[in-house]
């Protein structure tokens, strides 16, 4: 649904986005993840037709963004990082203005506005001036604006930025509820957001693509080591050295009463470890697989040039 090929954007000498490639399938939610100034907003602005790219191609629903900007603009909904609101308008008149410039036929406008208001939970503030409503509601007006014309593709730039935890959860719920009908690309620098809402992720840093793929694919490919975390009744240094002596174990570390045991991917050391625990009567309380989560992945990507 969204396809980016060798996308490059330069502002003078500054390269904001460099040879970016990624693909988002229909009906999926993808996260565009990266630290600040990574090029997330620039990428989204190019996709929505706000900025032209210096080089490369971008397609939304098979329309070339540069050759058919108007076709793309009709099927894309965009929530910029700074929500574009007119403070002097009421929520309703704002949505009605947006519905006009998004070419919704006059006969269907009312219906579309009703639907957007209902989906984004704006009923309580509908008659109020935008300048008088809270940050959370403003964000929702932004989302309502983005999805008022039933776009096939939604591009959301940091949809939860600046909201309180309860509001963040609500916005996430709203985004998740759109899944299936719409293809969504959202940017964020919050890791939890990706794990909780997204199917896949594109990680960029300083304009370079660091990694992209579905969450499972990525975590699997980055996991060079496997391991377990065990909790024992007995602890101490002698237990540590016992564990280290197991043939095939690369690394054992311990924190509090838990031991983290790692080995190279492919082997399975769980039998040996269990055997040792039973033989030495160490008293197993808990054993769980060591999961490489998105946070590890992200930090790894950002800190150390894991290029794919």
């Amino acid at each position: 649904m969204i396809e980016v090929e060798n996308l490059t954007k330069k502002y003078g000498d500054l390269v904001a986005v460099k040879n970016l490639n990624f693909k988002v399938e229909k009906g999926k939610i993808w996260g565009l993840l990266g630290p600040n100034a990574a090029g997330k907003t620039t990428t989204m602005r190019i996709l929505t037709g706000y900025l032209p790219a210096t080089d490369g191609k971008a397609f939304v629903a098979n329309y070339d963004v540069f050759e058919k900007p108007n076709d793309v603009k009709k099927i894309i909904g965009y929530l910029p990082e700074n929500v574009p609101l007119y403070p002097e308008m009421t929520v309703h008149s704002y949505l009605s203005f947006v519905s006009e410039i998004k070419q919704i036929p006059a006969s269907q406008r009312k219906e579309h506005i009703e639907k957007a208001v209902e989906m984004s939970g704006l009923e309580p503030v509908r008659k109020r001036l935008i300048k008088n409503i809270s940050r959370g509601f403003k964000q929702r007006v932004g989302i309502a604006q983005a999805l008022i014309h039933d776009p096939q593709v939604l591009v959301l730039d940091e949809p939860t930025a600046g909201l309180d935890p309860a509001q963040i959860i609500e916005i996430r719920k709203l985004i998740k509820s759109l899944k299936g009908e719409q293809t969504i690309l959202l940017s964020t620098h919050i890791l939890a957001e990706v794990t909780q809402t997204c199917d896949g992720v594109v990680i960029i840093n300083e304009g370079n693509l660091m990694a992209s793929g579905s969450l499972e694919e990525l975590t699997a490919s980055f996991k060079e080591k496997e391991g377990v975390v065990i909790k024992l009744k007995k602890g101490g240094k002698d237990v540590l050295s016992l564990l280290q002596k197991i043939h095939g174990v690369d690394e054992v570390s311990h924190a509090d009463d838990e031991f983290k045991i790692e080995w190279t991917k492919g082997k399975d050391m769980r039998d040996e470890i269990t055997k040792l625990i039973v033989d030495k009567e160490l008293g197993l309380i808990e054993m769980r697989p060591l999961a490489m989560n998105i946070e590890d992945l992200y930090l790894k990507v950002i800190s150390g040039g894991v290029a794919q």
Binding site: Y50, N70, K73, Y78, P80, P84, L85, Q103
Partner: peptide, 11 residues
């Protein structure tokens, strides 16, 4: 007020 981003991304 960044509303130009709305105008220029509408058809």
């Amino acid at each position: 007020s960044n509303t130009d981003e709305l105008l220029y991304t509408c058809p």
